[in-house]
């Protein structure tokens, strides 16, 4: 049984997106369930809801520090159209303001950089538990 996950990575630093993608691939490869992952990238917070719709995205990793906008604003926009989509916030720090806002806007995860595979694996497990009852 194979599962397909369309993952959107939003971060203005290409290196961060690459690192996250590599980490996710490691976790996916090691996972007992057969997973087929498709990655989509965005370096800005523009038109994220549209991208989600267009690419049938299932899981979003959303950096908080974005140019011209904040990841939390983008989260709010996403929630207006997709109240149930799994969105994991990524940030360099866990300031009280960011954490509380993330929770208020319904974030499903909060990963603090530098990320380790434990956190990445947790987010993947949570996705599988929530949407595929594994």
């Amino acid at each position: 049984m194979s599962i397909t996950i369309n993952i959107l990575l939003v971060d203005d630093v290409e290196y961060s997106r690459e690192l996250l993608r590599a980490a996710l691939l490691v976790c996916i490869r090691e996972h007992e369930v057969q997973i087929d992952a498709n990655f989509f990238h965005s370096s800005t917070g523009k038109s994220i809801p549209d991208q989600i719709k267009f690419n049938n995205v299932n899981l979003v990793y959303l950096d908080i520090e974005l140019p011209h906008t904040s990841g939390l604003e983008v989260l709010k926009q996403i929630r207006e159209v997709n109240p149930n989509l799994m969105v994991v916030m990524v940030s360099g720090e866990s300031s009280a303001a960011n954490v509380t806002t993330a929770i208020e806007h319904g974030a499903n995860g909060f990963i603090v950089k530098p990320f380790n595979s434990g956190r990445i694996l947790d987010s993947l497990q949570n996705y599988l538990k929530k949407f595929h009852k594994l």
């Binding site: 590599a22 980490a23 490691v26 380790n116 595979s117 434990g118």
Partner: peptide, 25 residues
């Protein structure tokens, strides 16, 4: 188990390669 998970990540050759590429840049 947990600390093993954490180190697994950074030993990955592909990930290490990424890091050093970025460092060069």
């Amino acid at each position: 188990d947990k600390s093993q998970r954490a180190t697994l990540f950074v030993q990955e050759p592909k990930i290490r390669a990424l890091f050093f590429t970025e460092l060069t840049k």
